[in-house]
Each structure stands twice: as C-alpha cells, then as structure tokens.
Design a protein around this nucleic acid. Structure first.
Lengths: 186, 186, 186, 186
DNA sequence: CATGAATGAGCCTTCATTCAT
DNA sequence: AATGAATGAAGGCTCATTCAT
C-alpha cells in the first residue's frame, strides 16, 4: 500500500517542519493559517492530514519524543563508567540545548492551555515517563534516585536558560555535576 | 467625594485573588470576563484598575514575587550551617510547592505567548535575577555555583512535578540533595 | 434667584470650553471622560449639568449659533451698498474661518451619527434656517436667490478648505465674488 | 481548486453594495456586523476581503470616486460653449444629487473621526485634487478661478441640501449660476 | 453639588474549522 | 488530494451612564 506510506511520510514531514513554527510563536499564538503558510500548504491541506490543531500538536510531541530518543541512543554508545555515561548525556543535551529548551517551553504552554480538557493519563505523562525510563536504563544506576537526580538537574537547567539573563555553559555544568556525583557516590 | 476605596489596596486585592483564577485555566485560556466574574466585579471595573490583560498579569508577577520573598524571609531565620539553610529552603518550597508550581507554569506560558513583544525591559529577567540574588545571599555560600546548583535543582523539581506521574517527596529530595552537597563540599 | 444664574452661567462656560475639545477629536471620538478632564471637572459633574452627551452637544450647537450671530451683528454695522455688505460678511467669515470650519465639520459629523434618532424638525434645521434668515435680512437683497447664492458660496468655501490641499485666501475669494455679483446685478 | 470567485471583482461588489449601508447609518454608527448582515455575508468574510473597517471605507472612497468620474465623462460629451458645459455638469450633479450628498456627508464624518491618524498619505486630498483637476479639464476655462468657483458652488449646494429645510432646485440653481457667470465673463 | 468607581452592552477583530470546487 | 473562501462564536477592550459617598 504505497499510498499510505506516502501519506504517512508526508504527515511526518509536515510535523517536523511545524516544530520551528510552533517554537517561534508559541502554541497558542500561532494560527493554523500561519502554520499552513509556513509549511507551504493550504489550511485545507493541513486539516486533511490532522484533525485539529490540538491533534497536530500532540502528534508532534510524540514524534519529537521518539526522534530525540533515537538520536540519543544512536550516538550514546555504552561507556563503561557512570561518569562517562553522565558526560555523554550532558554532551548530548548541550548539543541540542536550543531544541530541548523550545520543547519544554512548548510542552508547558500547551499543558497549561489544554489541561482543562486533557485527561490525566494523557500523551504527555506517558511520553515523559517513557523518556525518563529510557534514560534510567541507559545510566544503569542501581539507585533510581540518582537517575532522577540527573534528569531533574537537566530540567532545571532548561528552565534557568529561560529566566536567567546570563547564558549557561553546559559543559561547565556537566563538569560540576560529574564532580558532585562522583564525590557522592564514593 | 467618591466612593471610598483605597485604589491601590483594592488593586492588590484583585491581583492576589486573580492568581488562582489564572492558575486554574492558564493565562491564555482565561478570559477577562471569566476573570471579572471570578473576582466578583464587572469587566469595566477590571479595566478601571488595569490597563490590559497583559499589564494585569505583569503586575501579578511582580506582586507575587515580592510576597514570596517576604514570606520566605519572614520564616527563614538564619541557621548556622549550610545544610540547615538548605533544609530550610527546601521545607519552604515543599510547603508552598503547589503555589510555586502554578507560578512557574504561568510564567512560562506567558513568556511563550508574549515573548515576541517582551524583548527588553522584561519584568521577568529582572524579577528572577532579584530572586536568585536574594537566595544566594541567604545561603551565604562562597561559591556562587553552589547557590545556582541548588536553585537549579529546585526549578527542576517543579518541572518534574508537572510532567511525571508520580508525585515527588520534597523531604526525601531535600535529604538527598543535602547528602550530595555535603559530600561534595568536603 | 442667584443660584440659578450661577448654574446657568457655569453651564455656558462649560459649553463654550467644550467646543475646542469637540473640534479637536470629533464628536464621535471624544469620550465624556476626556471631555470632563479637558474641562477640569469629573464625569459626574458633567452629567450634573447635561443629561447626556447628545444633549450637551445640542446645547453647544444652539449656544454657538447665537454667539456667532451676535458677534456678527455687533461688528457688521449697516453699510449702504450691497457690495459693501457682502464684503463685510466675507471679512467676518475670513476672520473666523477656522471656527466656522470646525463648526461645519462637527455639525455634519453629528448629523450623520445621530440622524437615525433625530426627528425631522430638529434643532439643526431650525438653527440653520434662523441663521440664513438673519443673513438675508442683513444683506437686504430684493431677490432672496442672491442671499442664498452668497451663503451657498460660503458653505462651499468651508468644504473646500477641508478637502483641498491648497489653503484658500478668503480676501481673494471675497473680491472675486464681489466682482461677479456686481457684474450680475447690473 | 478553491471555490471559484474572482476575489477582486467580488471585493468591488461588496464595496459598492456597502455604500448604501454606510450612507444610511453613518460610518461611525454602523457596525461591521450590520454591514456584513446587510451584504449577506458573515463578519469573517468581510475581514477576508478587507483588513479593517477603516480600510474598507477608504477603498470605498477610492472606488466611488473613480466610478463618479467615469460616469460623468461617459455622458458629458464636449459641448462647444462654457455655458453648456456648466449646464451639463449641473444636470449630472442634479441627477445624482442624493448620491453626492451622501458621499460628502460620509467623507466629512470619516475625516472627522479619523483625522488624528490620517495626517499625510491621505487618500482624501489626492482623491479630491484628482476630481477637481478632471473637472477643470472638462470646463476648459482659461482662468482656473472660474473652475474653482463652480466647484465651490456645487459643494455649497450639497451642504445646504443637508441643513436647509427647503429642498433645492438644481435646475434653477444651474440657471442662476449660468447667468451670473455669463454676465461676469463678458 | 461633586466625585470617580462601577456597570455591561456592544464594538472591532481573530481564528479554528468546514466545505464547495 | 488540495485549495482557500466562508463561517460565527468568542475575545479583549471601550465608554456613556449611574450612583454611593
């Protein structure tokens, strides 16, 4: 069924291209018309591929989550020590900082605007749980609290990037966290 | 003589009462009409006290920021050891978790929606810088990186509280962070 | 009854002062609040003296009409020839051009906005008829058509002052009309 | 393929049909909803064709101005004597008196309401200059003052038609003006 | 008399969504 | 499949007017 493949592939193309548009203006501020224009299609076409703005966004969340994970696993390898694994993670985040930052902002904004209509076991929670789980697996820490701690720190960095005036040096932060954790784990 | 009202005091009352309404539905989703209704006034009255929805929200940010800081300082005291000071901070955050969580969500959502028009005299950056400065003072750490680290961690916790399904035990987290930092500072 | 005199006198003061405010922003665009502010009173006071914006404006029309006529008659005298009388009229108009222009604009705007609610024998028609009658009396022409013609020309000048880019020289125009009429009347 | 409509042609249709609606209630008093309803479309459609109420009106001005001129030239011919040309003009105005009267009222009202924002690239001045120029060409008078005089008189008639209770006989007025001018030009 | 806080209907405009072509 | 014209509910905001003080 080649038609369906095409259809599906095109859908994902649109999805991926739409990320920058969403990021630029925000979920609530960008209009379907602007989205369509930015993608080079008509609003009608947009609605041919996605039933609604909300659904489009939700699919984007899902798609990006998968992509992010795949990208990470593709280049992460399996370093022998926890320190190295943490460093690898930080490098990855540092490299994609801008991307992740945009994602968090967008996810939060969407969550705020739609939480009234979103069921509790929504795509969001499951998606994030999946991600955190994957990361925990990668780090292979005996104590889950450590994985949580690292992730936590990462989220925190992203947030600070938004509100603080000074830009953050991820490599520095990674070094700091490594030192701290190594000291603690001993 | 007009009706007797302390304009400024009433304004702050409205501001404070509006927080829960904003938190409930989000900045973008709540309407001025709903806000007015929730506050028990007419839309006209709302506009009598605030020039616009955006201005109202910005004033809310400022007011809450001040209140939060005052509240904290009022009960923080000045414990002798860093560990205790950190614990005090965590207890405070734990006690007000819900509040802070709502604030962060709201700030982020607003930032997303209005970032196009918020380039410079951004009440946000200055407000957060002020807060972080105050916290750094309180902790009295020689190395600013430590203060940053703690704050960072706090923001991270807040974010995780939003996306993770499991609720977070702040006391546990505080204990963990304390241990980690003590290990590192030695 | 001195109180009433004061009240009435103050009312006329407000009326006269309000003319410039109306002229500056237009009847439809100026708000009662702006009007009050410009007059140095509160909106409540405004409504103490005038039952509504519309009534205020209508009183202004009446008052200005009377003033204009009085002013004219005060300085018009009674020149022996028609030519001189016409010239006197034109000088008067030229001297108060700006004033008259503002009046016409305002009257027209008001008429447009309120014509749906204004009865046919409204203050406007009667007021203008009174004015034209007075002018016809002054000119003492045997043929009413001449008086109409002159008035007509005057209205036309006012209108052109609005729409044409070049400013109009009233003295020149007066001379021209005089020549024309003299030629015709012979 | 979208619904088949000639966007530009439909726009002009809406424009032309909107004139009566504007004329009936005035620029400031009619609402976009009323306009839409009167045109048999939704407000959304109105905004699909015109960016704003003001822009819609400005386009109407331009369009009517062109139409008026075209209509006149189409039936004016080129009579040999000035007297006849003036008469032709007057006949044209007489025939369309109602139309022109409405236009002047509307233009003036709009000018009043928006003059604050209409400082320079004022479609009004240019439009009127164009018209006066065309008329001057048509009359072929050596002395521009004569053309101005005639136009002036016409505007005046229109204004009087608004404020005077008695209706005006255009043919009579035309005869009068002809006589006067002929007397003067000799 | 004077004040200005309060009201709420109503305005212009936007935008997700539908549907004829 | 693709287009973009059409819809209309709903949003932010204004403003003449009222009324408690």
């Amino acid at each position: 069924m080649p038609k369906i493949v095409d259809h599906d592939q095109y859908r994902k193309e649109l999805l991926l291209k739409s990320f920058d548009l969403f990021a630029e203006r925000g979920y609530g501020s960008i209009t379907m018309r602007q989205l369509a224009q930015g993608l080079g299609v008509s609003t009608g076409t947009l609605y041919h591929y996605f039933p609604s703005k909300q659904a489009l966004f939700l699919q984007l969340v899902e798609e990006l989550d998968r992509q992010d994970l795949l990208n990470f696993l593709a280049e992460a390898g399996n370093p022998p020590t926890l320190t190295e694994r943490i460093e690898t993670m930080f490098n990855f985040v540092a490299k994609n900082e801008d991307n992740f930052c945009k994602q968090v902002l967008l996810w939060v904004e969407f969550y705020q605007q739609e939480k009234a209509e979103l069921t509790k076991n929504n795509a969001f929670h499951s998606s994030w749980d999946k991600t955190t789980q994957a990361i925990a697996d990668y780090l292979q820490v005996p104590d889950k609290a450590i994985a949580d701690f690292v992730l936590n720190y990462l989220y925190g960095l992203l947030m600070r990037g938004i509100f603080e005036t000074e830009t953050i040096s991820y490599p520095e932060q990674a070094t700091l966290l490594s030192k701290i954790l190594v000291a603690y784990l001993k």
